[in-house]
């Protein structure tokens, strides 16, 4: 059983979700896991990839048209590689993975499976549906099984000091010229990544405005935490979209999740309810967030937050 894992990276660094996806590949029982690093001037990524335990080969496709991971060019590359001898294609269920993998599946004429959260056998998986209000067990008889993997549902793969995999250069080049990169507005945060942080502190509509998120940042500094937000806070323009935690935003499962001024809409809970410990701070004691919180504190967040910061 050969498994192809699609690496996610920014040509410098592998994303943490890639390591989780490799653990999923290992759980499928494969001893031959190949990691595809498609990008441009992405040698640093390949150097990280060869140190991941369980990966036997790192396939490097270094080509200018792969720089921004545009689905129109990456999907045919995946198709060409996958149809040689792979039983499974796995990609992180990130915005990149969700963009590219279904298109690659279309080119292979197979039905992909989105965002699996557990592996029951090599062709049977669970995945959340209805915003996490139900869990479906699905099975597939597709000739190649293409799926995206929810990172928080699998541990991160371990790495070695030494190289464990060999690098193989892929010379397939697709430049369909259907799309081009214009620009990006990346959130430059010197904080841990929201998807993989051990502690996340999120603000909701109760924060009242974007400036007040500084109160969360002070606590995040002390706990080395990532900052998150509810959809309501993002829709209201308090913070950028990439901070949104929820079914349609990021799925997180840190050791400690602190929800501040968040009522707890189902949509939000779907994105954080697998956190180990949940703390809710809200002035409304009837807020649904308290129904899933391990520790609830009812009160005015503008008094509570400075006190927490002071006591940490």
């Amino acid at each position: 059983m050969n498994i192809l894992v699609i690496a996610e990276h920014n040509n410098q660094q592998l994303s943490s979700a890639t390591y989780n996806t490799i653990t999923a590949a290992l759980q499928l029982g494969s001893t031959d896991i190949h990691l595809l690093v498609a990008g441009h001037e992405c040698a640093p990524v390949a150097q990280q990839a060869v140190k991941i335990n369980g990966v036997s080969t790192v396939l490097v496709a270094d080509f200018s048209a792969y720089q921004h991971f545009l689905a129109e060019n990456i999907a045919p590359l995946i198709r060409d590689i996958a149809q040689t001898h792979y039983s499974h294609i796995l990609a992180p269920a990130s915005t990149n993975g969700k963009d590219v993998l279904p298109r690659a599946a279309a080119l292979l004429d197979i039905e992909p499976i989105s965002e699996i959260t557990s592996i029951i056998s090599a062709n049977t998986f669970t995945r959340p549906i209805y915003a996490g209000n139900a869990i479906a067990t699905v099975t597939t008889n597709a000739p190649i099984i293409a799926m995206t993997v929810r990172g928080t549902a699998f541990d991160s793969a371990l790495t070695s000091e030494e190289n464990v995999a060999t690098i193989e250069t892929i010379s397939i080049q697709h430049d369909k010229q259907l799309s081009s990169f214009v620009n990006e507005a990346l959130s430059l945060a010197d904080r841990p990544d929201l998807g993989s942080a051990k502690v996340v502190i999120s603000g909701g509509r109760g924060m009242q405005n974007g400036e007040n998120f500084a109160l969360l940042e002070k606590i995040a500094d002390k706990l080395d935490a990532a900052i998150g937000a509810s959809r309501a806070a993002v829709d209201a323009g308090y913070v950028a979209n990439d901070l949104q935690v929820g079914q349609t935003g990021k799925i997180v499962a840190p050791d400690l999740y602190i929800a501040v001024g968040i009522s707890g809409a189902i949509q939000h809970l779907a994105g954080m309810k697998d956190s180990k410990i949940i703390v809710a701070i809200n002035k409304d004691e009837e807020a649904p967030i308290f129904q899933i919180a391990d520790y609830g504190l009812v009160g005015d967040l503008f008094e509570i937050l400075p006190e927490i910061e002071q006591r940490l």
Binding site: I110, E111, I129, A136, A142, D294, Y295, G296, L297
Partner: peptide, 27 residues
């Protein structure tokens, strides 16, 4: 269809914990 649903389950419910009285108790 290649992908078929075998069964559907309700997610495991998280139990509510307890309320704390103040920041000191929380920490």
């Amino acid at each position: 269809p290649q992908v078929t649903t075998q069964r559907v389950d309700a997610p495991t419910q998280r139990k509510a914990g307890s309320k704390v009285a103040n920041v000191e108790e929380l920490i």
